[in-house]
Design a protein around this nucleic acid. Structure first.
Lengths: 229, 229
DNA sequence: CGGTATCCCCCGCGATACTG
DNA sequence: CAGTATCGCGGGGGATACCG
């Protein structure tokens, strides 16, 4: 796609690559440390495999991504180049603006599977007890197949399961998707959700008190929304 | 267009508006101080009127732009809201990245009319002699109807003419489009272009020496390209 | 100047099925 | 797991003409 805008302005040239559909979300995943094809897809579940591959090729030819052979299989990992790493200020600026000014969350935005995937990257495993901690997440208002998830945490790794992982639950979190989403976004304080009863944590009382601190929430959660004026 | 990406991530929500085609360029113009419909169009000449209007409506409904009645005619001016003003870090980050890492300038990017329009916003009229200064720009390799432009400068205003403005030229600049573009981008030092002879300035020798300083160049011109390694 | 209205084409993209 | 192949449609957007 040569010269989409007919300008040599750096913003126009950068736009050609960066404003393609799904592109910023793919870059967000790569920036968050995703390297494998399906790892990226889990963070951008609504993109088709065909289109994701196409986007990755575009990123490669733009010098933003490189492929590196990995492991024993013939497959490869996608790595950000130096040019890709320098996209971080853009993602940060877009996220900050979105946190402050973007539209409110709609029904269709509330994908519980994506929420859990986002949460699993932001768990403070160092603050957890030694050994394995299993957090069961129960979204009371989600469709049956998206109602239950488990976060299996063993410092420093966190794994997402959609079936019982075979270990006892350490704690059980029960909430609705919107509450958890707003807590994750930093729009609603977790303490408020707890005292309202829209989010409950069950388990050994010593751990129940610590658990809210294990959730590090979105990287933009500290940025305050602007329309509260 | 509700929930294009099915995520409540702030980057995804911001993307819905910001990554529409032409959107960043329209915002660049608004951020540069353009307020009228056709003023924006001159900075984004390849967008159709229909689509520009559509984009402006989207910006309005996203809370990024407001319309304000202006002057005697029934028309209006487009003004950035506070949310729109806070997009500046995004434009800045995208431009900086583009300056460092975006693809090289192609033939079709080299629109001399756009170049002159970009330049006219970045003229240091305060450094010019008192009264009116007329700069004639001659692009030797441009198609006939885009070969000659005039910048009529009278502090602090600069006007672009595509026909002889009716005043004597103070100075005459002769160059090819690519040279002027690369100088404007800060990729090639103007001194180098002058000594190579790919850019010449003719007129009273006292003014010829000052003239290179009148061109403030792109706001990203100080950012160095990265692939010089 | 600042738009509308209309037409129509193309291709971006989603969906589905299949492979090494 | 990491893709490829194919099909088909929808609508985004370019072009052109028109208007107050």
């Amino acid at each position: 796609m040569p010269s989409q805008f007919g300008q040599f302005c750096p913003i126009a040239l950068a736009s050609e690559v960066l404003t393609q559909k799904w592109m910023l979300l793919v870059l967000r995943e790569l920036n968050a440390g995703a390297t494998r094809f399906n790892e990226i897809r889990r963070g951008v579940p609504r993109i088709s495999a065909t289109l994701l591959k196409q986007r990755l090729l575009q990123l490669e030819s733009a010098g933003i991504v490189t492929r590196r052979p990995v492991g024993a299989d013939g497959h490869e990992a996608y790595i950000l180049t130096e040019a890709g790493a320098e996209l971080k200020p853009i993602l940060s600026a877009v996220g900050t603006w979105g946190q402050r000014w973007a539209r409110d969350i709609e029904r269709e935005d509330l994908d519980p599977a994506w929420l859990v995937w986002a949460m699993h990257r932001r768990i403070d495993t160092a603050a957890m007890p030694q050994g394995r901690t299993v957090l069961a997440l129960h979204f009371v208002d989600a469709p049956a197949h998206h109602r239950l998830f488990w976060l299996v945490c063993e410092h420093p790794r966190v794994e997402v399961c959609i079936k019982p992982p075979g270990f006892d639950d350490t704690l059980r979190v029960e909430t609705d998707v919107r509450t958890m989403a707003e807590v994750w976004r930093g729009i609603r304080p977790i303490g408020q959700a707890l005292s309202e009863g829209s989010l409950t944590i069950e388990g050994p009382s010593a751990l129940v008190g610590q658990a809210p601190g294990w959730f590090l929430l979105s990287v933009f959660s500290e940025t305050k929304r602007a329309d509260c004026r």
